[in-house]
Amino acid sequence: MSTDTAPASPPPPPPSPSKSAGSISSGQDTRPGDRVFAGLARGSGIILLVVMAAIAAFLAWQATTALTENEGNFLTTFEWDANADPPVFGIAVLAFGTIVSSVIAMVIAVPIAVGIALFISHYAPRKLAAPLAWAVDLLAAVPSIVYGLWGALFLVPHVTGLYEWMDDYFAWTGILEYNGGAARSLFTVGILLAIMILPIVSNVCREVFKQSPKMQEEAALALGATRWEVIKMSVLPFGRSGIISASMLGLGRALGETMAVATVLSPSFLIEPSLLDPGGGTFAQNIAASFKEASAAGIGREALIASGLVLFVITLLVNGLARLIIARRKEYSGANA
């Protein structure tokens, strides 16, 4: 793709500033101050790696302790009795709840986040765009427990009307039944998670949209394309991988969110077919909710750590995939520029 710049690009690619600076003095690293400082810097890099390894190792170690004593099947048991004498626990309900609530969050949040990003980058009046971007940045900093409190005390009473309406028209689907009572259900959790990840997803999307090639956009405009045609033909294709990775980052957040789920959801160890009725649970929510009882005796804490390990692995995979897509895009845009 970058054949037109071929003569300039071969072996010596644009050297990053750091590397050239490093190579200048690498031959004379004999001064004691240099050695100490370089050692300190390298040492802290190594500490970071050690911490990561320790996280994986200790979680895995404690998890195996719990799993060897587990009388139930860890993957399929619909129960969490880790404190009982023959401990029985399984993550089936938690995995279901985590995935369902995150998927609902993604379905709601991603289109809206793309809309917001487009609004800020292409639609908003110039004077409004900068303060808006700034406000969205600030909202990303609101702590999750505040979202949780708002969700439990404000959102839950306000969605019951909507749920009754959905029950009236969509109850036949089986998954959108609502039998009254407080709407502390997986669907409400999904809505709240969507609101929480909106700022992050739209921030990343906005950054990508801002980098879309201006020349293409202007060329399209000059040919008489409407604003939507410009976006459809030059902004969205350019930003597609950016949108995907942004949603993956948001998904990572939604999967691991603890407090907002713990405050809103009314948990149970059943898989309810109806998403609007209370019940279910997520990995993080279950850890937060059953931790105090788990500390008493038995292998309660170890069992929770085992479920945490599963969450850890899932978020690692999701985030790793997102990073991979971002990394690929970097090369692409580099060749384009």
Partner: peptide, 10 residues
Amino acid sequence: DVMTGIPSIV
């Protein structure tokens, strides 16, 4: 990068 994505509960 990986560490950035660790959920706080983990």
